[in-house]
Nucleic acid binder design. Structure first.
Lengths: 216, 216
DNA sequence: CGATTCGGTCAACAGTGTGTCGAGAGCGGG
DNA sequence: CCCGCTCTCGACACACTGTTGACCGAATCG
């Protein structure tokens, strides 16, 4: 799943000239850097512009708003996460062993870890930003679809017992991942220690799908 | 658990005079009403003030900011949720039957349903608002503690098998609840139909705790 | 019963941020 | 050489926030 329709639409009025491409990259880099220090809401367009060595109006030549920058950043991260997933581990009906699930969860957690500032910012922005919400929803839908397939395949084979409709189980497990990982990396509320994250999640996935933490 | 320390501190400089109490209530009511239409970020202090029939500066006599209003609203909802929980169902080591768990989950979902606008607004505000974050973290910690106790009791009795540390299991299940319920009520992304919410969550709780969806 | 105090109210101000407009600078190509 | 293009920014209009200071009316007290 490569998510071609996700390509950011509100990027800017740029056409094809080379020189100013650097500026665009500079803005993105500045945003990712500053996001590691403060939340997006505490960043002004001016901070982003100055950080990239341009004036505020020039910023608007490249991006329609702060949020558009975040969307572009998120788009990259999502593409990377998707590649990590698709790149081997977990395609189609292949998969379903403990190690397949572990690899998928590890890919998820690692991508989050590698880009926590972007991921955390995206999570904060999502409620107020339709585009971020839709992009994320699309990504989740992809993951849910894939998990649903594997669960159904395991049931057809008799490896997993019947239970909740596969899609519903996939949805709750995915939601759990999202919230638990967010909680661990944002550090508020009761959280799972970062180094045990994958194991804990894996245990719950396996138990609910196969009714035992150590499936065939 | 009654959370006495949660009492909102940033409420206003009011002392004890009667007449102006109505204004405070009017602001809160206006906020809850408007929140059903737009997110908090789209509401100005002026909207709140006009809605309550006062001027903007007067608003500041009662609340330090928009966010303080939300915090007060959330504080009420949380107190209610806590009462629903504590009010019978699920005290101390009592509990652990299917119906106990179901009642607890129903209380959770129903409180959310009854105040969705406040709950959704609080969820959006949490990343940027320390006080909301802390209040919510405190509440979650309470739920996690209680669930942990019940799980440990069941294990001690031999009703539930060993597995993940009880606290970690309680954390992930709680996180799952939060995210799934939020997803269902906010309507973005893949979601569980509202009328099946409790059943689906219950199934996962029981399966992970007792390793079967139909415990003793 | 005038003076004082205090809860409550708001017009006006200062500050910070956003997004836009219009006037250009620099450069390639006809 | 000038046209048109990308790219740049000073200056503006606007929205919203939070504060100040003057003011009103009603209790309270000497």
């Amino acid at each position: 799943m490569s998510l071609p329709p996700a390509r950011v639409a509100a990027r800017g009025r740029r056409a094809a000239r080379p020189s100013g491409d650097d500026r665009e990259l500079a803005i993105l880099a500045t945003a990712e850097r500053l996001l590691a220090e403060k939340p997006l809401s505490a960043l002004s367009v001016d901070d982003l512009a100055r950080g990239a060595g341009i004036s505020r109006p020039t910023f608007y030549f490249y991006f329609a708003s702060k949020d558009a920058v975040l969307l572009t950043l998120l788009d990259r991260v999502v593409a990377e996460a998707d590649a990590a997933f698709t790149g081997g581990v977990f395609d189609g009906l292949q998969g379903g062993t403990r190690e397949n699930w572990r690899a998928a969860l590890t890919a998820y957690v690692d991508t989050f870890r590698a880009h926590r500032s972007v991921a955390l910012a995206a999570a904060s922005a999502r409620p107020d930003n339709r585009e971020v919400r839709e992009l994320w929803a699309r990504v989740c839908e992809g993951w849910v679809l894939r998990a649903t397939e594997v669960i159904e395949a395991a049931r057809a084979q008799g490896t997993a017992p019947d239970g909740l409709p596969a899609r519903q189980l996939a949805i709750v497990l995915n939601s759990m991942n999202e919230r638990v990982v967010y909680g661990t990396f944002s550090g508020d509320g009761p959280a799972i220690p970062e180094d045990q994250l994958v194991d804990v999640l894996l245990d719950v996935w396996l138990t609910t799908i196969y009714r035992t933490p150590h499936p065939a």
